[in-house]
Design a protein around this nucleic acid. Structure first.
Lengths: 197, 197, 197, 197
DNA sequence: TATTAAACGAGACGGTACGTCCTGTCTTGGT
DNA sequence: ACCAAGACAGGACGTACCGTCTCGTTTAATA
């Protein structure tokens, strides 16, 4: 007379998951998303293909999860910094982590993935939009303190700050360096100090 | 002992090229880049696979060239429009053409392609950077007429205008509509009217 | 720490093997060895090409195995027949089965195949040399009974009986019919009745 | 102002023919019939594919003609030799030239070719049946001189002499050496000296 | 403690597509 | 009219992966 409906049988192996992610991460860094394949991951991780399919719906989701753990976590800001300095610091950090090969791979992964997938959403929230949310918090705090006036459209402003990053990765027409981070932050604050009439 | 360099052998068939591109374009619109394959193009175009490989190094380059001809050409602006109205009009046009499935496909194709390839460069110049160049011309003309003051960093400003487009396609966190085009143009001109001190 | 050598993984499908052989046999009879291709076999059998390559190293080996099962098995001889009548009967049977298109196909397959291949050897033993061995048994029994005297060189004698068959297939200079079978058997027994001095 | 009504236009290049045959011969000796291809011959000979197709209907006919010139010409026999010694000498020569890789290739070429083709016929007459005809002449001369009695069936006898050669090439069950040539000739003459009753 | 159900690795399955090679034909410019 | 060069449509090659499906083998929760 069973009490709890709890799972029967052998539980999923956390070790297999870990090995798959590690192998995927390694292969991504080595050869890029284009060369990544379930077979290669299974081979490199020493696990079976069905085990991968038991844990992820397809290659994109596995890649996405592998990239998440590689992607930059948001560090807590220095409270003594001015809002503009804090934004500059964040953008500089982003620029650094995206100017690597990894940055391009993350962008490709994001571009190719099913936009409705749970993992794509999680990835966006974790890696991309969290930076945007951080920027928003920073700016809104300054506005609340009266240091800045509110922009015409906050969403557009945020995209004008974080969008150019991906633009430079995709189009590659201009360098992605710390000067760019500086320049972006300065322009954003110009907009905030001189609101449209 | 004449030895004119004149090409020997049967020349490449312009017809085969055309049929391949037409088939690729059709399949792209039908099923997207993910379902595109050399075999399917050859089958649909009624040409041989080796003929495709003779004309393009790989699927990406074929897709790229097929997309170029699909992508929006820059229409000549109305000279009576104010600079801000002209920019708004251009961004609205871009937003319209990129908010379709095709927009995402173009972005994916661009993201997945070899960034060093000749076609990728051509594509970027033709599809993406031409819009940016057009915006630059528009703004610089207005500055030259004394209607606007020069921005701190023109390259950054341009990326703040055209980057957010790709950001919204990639991250999908906010709609890509004509309000956004309006809002972007307005913010850009705020920056130009009130230069940083 | 048991570690029985027992095979891991999904076992080969006997059904796939069977379907491939049946399809190959059918195509061989229909169009001949020249028109046979792995792709056609896979298509006709409703199996994947890699499955064929998992079971046979190349087209020749598949064809060889398909032909083995088609080739004439040795029927048990009538014990009441005289040795010469038995040999005549066997040669008549061989002549009948080789005078068909199939005979030529078998000969071509045998000629074109890698002579060192396991399948080629199996095929030779099964289809060609078994007839020769049968003839040898028949003759040696008659010699043992004292009905015939031993030939100078048994190997040469056997090749003089079974070689002309292939010669007529290859060169096509003379018909391959039952008169020939008769004539061959008669000449062989002349040799056995009147040994060289 | 043409004088002779003969052919118009540029005549076929004897040089191109020669180069094609030489290249085919070389590739045959190097890699065997299996690796031979029109493209490889054209490449190696430095001539165009259409030139090959103008001279031969297909690869088999080119190969056949290339092999003809390689194949052993019949040397005139020593008139002082006994008929048996002369046959032994001929068979020894044949055995020598067929025990090479070339022998097998010739056999394969003969087996795979269209048996109705003009070249196949020519090849058979030139390479295979000429030896058989030579043997026939030799035997018939001896019979005419009264040295030997006529066999039951001359055609069968001739095939019993020349067939075993191909049998040993195809089946590879016994060596193809000068002992075999000896043994064959001896058995043939046994048959001729002791006709069936 | 023994049972048992689900996980595991291994690897074959039917498929699809790859990129290469060759076939036999056709189309150039050049002899 | 021929030549070499080389592109053409077509088709087969052998390989790599896909996502699914057995296998025989652990393994941990349950009974």
């Amino acid at each position: 007379m069973s009490q709890v409906p709890g799972k029967r049988g052998r539980p999923r192996s956390a070790d297999a998951r870990r090995k798959a992610l590690a192998a995927a991460r390694h292969l991504l860094m080595e050869d890029g998303l284009g060369r990544l394949s379930i077979e290669a991951v299974a081979r490199a991780a020493g696990i079976g293909k069905p085990t991968i399919y038991r844990n992820w719906a397809n290659l994109q989701e596995l890649a996405m999860e592998a990239l998440i753990t590689v992607a930059p976590a948001e560090s807590t800001p220095d409270p003594d910094l001015s809002p503009q300095a804090a934004l500059t610091a964040q953008l500089t950090r982003l620029v650094q982590s995206f100017s690597s090969t990894r940055g391009r791979q993350i962008t490709i992964a994001l571009a190719s993935a099913d936009p409705e997938s749970e993992f794509t959403r999680a990835f966006r929230n974790r890696v991309i939009l969290s930076a945007r949310a951080h920027g928003r918090a920073l700016i809104e705090a300054a506005i609340a303190r009266g240091d800045l006036s509110a922009p015409q459209d906050m969403e557009t402003l945020l995209d004008m700050i974080y969008g150019p990053l991906f633009f430079r990765i995709l189009a590659g027409h201009q360098p992605l360096d710390s000067n760019f981070a500086d320049s972006l932050a300065r322009a954003a604050f110009d907009l905030l100090r001189n609101p449209a009439r």
